[in-house]
């Protein structure tokens, strides 16, 4: 069986299938263990493994029309089991070394990859003790700017607008952070942004031409913005983290865009609440994460950003953040 090696979020993946979304790399040297990713497509007639006999540690707040949660997750001593209502299953070793992806033939493979590159690798990073924020990241003057926000807050849209204004994209959906001697780095993701059609249209107009991520899955219409060609630049090297901007959509939205500093204790809560793997399945790791975030906040500035309700102000929102960031960088 063929093995393909990829680099993403500072990890090396070893996959039994080609993943054109990712950046190919060489097999790793000894001591740098890859994450083994195995894919297994199943026909409808083969039953999927049942969930472990215990309560789920995670139940997604998003539900289908019949009130069933779209995602549930369980764990035992060795594995996390992440089951999607549509039949996609991911089995993750608690050592963060292996992922088994099982999905029914009716689901487009692009959808499976999108879940792998988001919440599943977010869990792997967390299991490996790497901070993984719900965030997108761009590069300005050789420093990483992280846009933090909950699901649907517009992180990718804002990163796309910043890219249009000349910034290289570093990562979408996950910002993987590592630290050495109080220097925090953000690792590159993969050379694409994922956008809803409304966001693509707001930035590039109705003829945006962005292709669907999962053309065979009608219920999910996200699009890929391909990066790494022409002006749509992508950064392939880890970058020094300088600032985090938290997208705060509390009601009511302000009439004018606001960018303000946060108290450290407020920033700690925002960052912890918006890390991947929010579950409490490992108390020790959660405490370690709070401790890591406290150290992060000693070297990184955090701002809250309150956008207006009008998507047409996206260029102004991007400019307001970039101006604030440039001020911070120029003070170094």
């Amino acid at each position: 069986m063929n093995s393909y090696y990829y680099t993403v979020y500072g990890l090396i993946l070893c996959s039994n299938r080609l993943l054109p979304e990712l950046i190919l790399t060489q097999p790793p040297s000894a001591g740098n263990d890859p994450v083994i990713v195995s894919f297994e497509e199943r026909s409808r007639n083969i039953p999927l493994p049942p969930p472990p006999n215990q309560s789920p540690y995670y139940v997604s707040p998003n539900k289908d029309t019949e009130g069933r949660p779209l995602v549930k997750a369980w764990c035992d001593d060795n594995y996390l089991f992440v089951f999607y209502l549509n039949g996609c299953h991911f089995v993750i070793s608690r050592t963060g070394d292996t992922i088994k992806c099982i999905w029914p033939s009716k689901i487009d493979f692009g959808y499976v990859i999108a879940q792998l590159l988001g919440p599943i690798l977010g869990s792997i990073l967390q299991l490996r003790g790497i901070l993984a924020l719900h965030a997108s990241a761009v590069v300005v003057r050789g420093r990483a700017l992280v846009i933090l926000g909950s699901h649907g807050s517009g992180k990718s849209t804002l990163a796309a607008e910043m890219n249009r204004q000349g910034c290289s994209v570093l990562s979408d959906d996950i910002a993987a952070l590592t630290e050495y001697d109080n220097i925090w780095m953000v690792h590159p993701g993969y050379p694409r942004l994922r956008l809803w059609p409304t966001s693509a249209e707001a930035i590039y107009g109705p003829e945006h031409g962005l292709r669907r991520i999962a053309p065979g899955y009608d219920r999910w219409d996200k699009r890929y913005l391909d990066l790494g060609e022409g002006k749509r630049t992508f950064e392939t090297q880890a970058q020094l983290l300088r600032a985090v901007y938290v997208l705060d959509w509390r009601d009511p939205p302000p009439d004018v865009i606001q960018v303000k500093p946060l108290l450290k204790r407020e920033a700690l809560v925002w960052l912890d609440a918006l890390c991947y793997s929010q579950s409490n399945y490992d108390r020790r790791k959660r405490a370690q994460r709070l401790s890591n975030l406290e150290r992060l906040l000693n070297s990184v500035q955090v701002r809250t950003v309150r956008p207006t309700a009008d998507l047409a102000t996206l260029p102004e929102l991007s400019s307001a953040i970039l101006n604030d960031f440039e001020d911070a960088v120029s003070r170094e």
């Binding site: 108290l263 450290k264 204790r265 700690l268 809560v269 912890d272 108390r283 959660r286 405490a287 709070l290 401790s291 975030l293 406290e294 906040l297």
Partner: peptide, 12 residues
């Protein structure tokens, strides 16, 4: 669990 930051505690 709890974490001190800038002389104040955040409890979770």
């Amino acid at each position: 669990i709890f974490q001190e930051i800038d002389g104040e505690l955040v409890l979770l």
